[in-house]
Design a protein around this nucleic acid. Structure first.
Length: 289
DNA sequence: AACCAGGGAAGAT
DNA sequence: ATCTTCCATGGT
């Protein structure tokens, strides 16, 4: 058993992150005690790591705890990466002070990008969530993981690509996947297993190249790549302009009676470069109440 | 009951 | 290249 503490350089609203993570029933969280259990894959092991808030948004301190004594440094690095504790969110806040979103950023200070726990898991989740309302989307991803994934110490690990690649479309249709969605999930997993799609390698490419490369895969369009770039890789400058949630948020703040077009949204978002991801997150957050 | 949902492929211009 | 239609399924 070990425990390690870490201080973030700027504001960091961990409690908000927990609220956001709690939308996913697969993630084990205790908002009152302010911790989340993160499933971590090691070479030959699956371990669960508890990440807990010990400070405040203004003076953020976190603890990372695990009873798995090997690879402590690797695990800690991984967690620090997922939560992006090194990112100075005060700089982001500063940037948006001269923008149209200054009020929102004042209201929602220290909103971090918390990355999904694994590149492949994230891609599967984003594909499954395409075009579905959030409630049913999480119902589907939960069924998928609880049927084909693995539970370790009360936390769920997504299935391995090898497991999914072997499934028949009917296996997922039983879980109420549409035929298309079943094809996208299984066929993409097959490509990964066959070595035709290397997410680790793609994750190192510049954003535009990731768009081109991943966008070629059947079932993966612009929205899916953008979300993967934002949530799996945690990149700073993504703005899913076609996303319904973003459009609804802007409709509200601009007091329009119709949702703004993708083009209008994209144009406005240029002002928020190079931190468009934080604009997107804060806009989502602003309509999550 | 109709319309929507944190889309995307396939077909038609 | 860009626009339109169809795909599916639960939620409100």
């Amino acid at each position: 058993m070990w425990k390690e503490y870490y201080h973030a350089p700027g504001m960091y609203d961990f409690d908000y992150s927990l609220r956001r993570l709690s939308m996913d029933p697969l993630i084990r969280i205790n908002s009152k005690e302010r911790w989340v259990d993160v499933p971590v894959r090691l070479e030959n092991d699956k371990v669960v790591v508890r990440v807990k808030a010990e400070g405040t948004t203004e003076k953020p301190v976190f603890s990372v705890m695990s009873d798995h004594d090997e690879n402590q440094d690797v695990i800690f690095e991984h967690i620090r990466n997922i939560f992006q504790w090194d990112k100075d969110l005060d700089e982001v806040h500063q940037f948006f002070q001269q923008s149209e979103l200054s009020m929102l950023f004042h209201q929602y200070q220290g909103t971090p990008i918390v990355r999904d726990f694994n590149l492949y898991d994230s891609l599967m989740k984003v594909i499954i969530h395409q075009q579905l309302n959030m409630k049913f989307a999480f119902t589907l991803s939960t069924r998928f993981v609880q049927k084909y994934g693995e539970e370790v110490d009360g936390s769920w690990f997504y299935p391995e690509p090898e497991t999914v690649a072997k499934l028949n479309y009917e296996d997922l249709r039983e879980l109420q996947f549409s035929q298309r969605k079943a094809e996208y999930v299984i066929d993409t997993s097959k490509k990964i297993v066959d070595g035709d799609l290397d997410l680790q390698e793609i994750s190192k490419l510049p954003t535009e190249d990731v768009m081109k490369r991943l966008g070629k895969v059947r079932g993966i369009g612009p929205w899916t790549v953008e979300n993967w770039l934002l949530f799996a890789l945690g990149r700073d400058d993504l703005f899913p302009a076609a996303d319904i949630g973003i459009q609804n948020a802007l409709k509200k703040w601009w007091q329009m009676d119709k949702k703004p077009s993708k083009d209008d949204v994209e144009k406005k978002a240029e002002e928020w470069t190079p931190y468009r991801s934080y604009a997107a997150l804060t806009l989502w957050r602003s309509i999550e109440d």
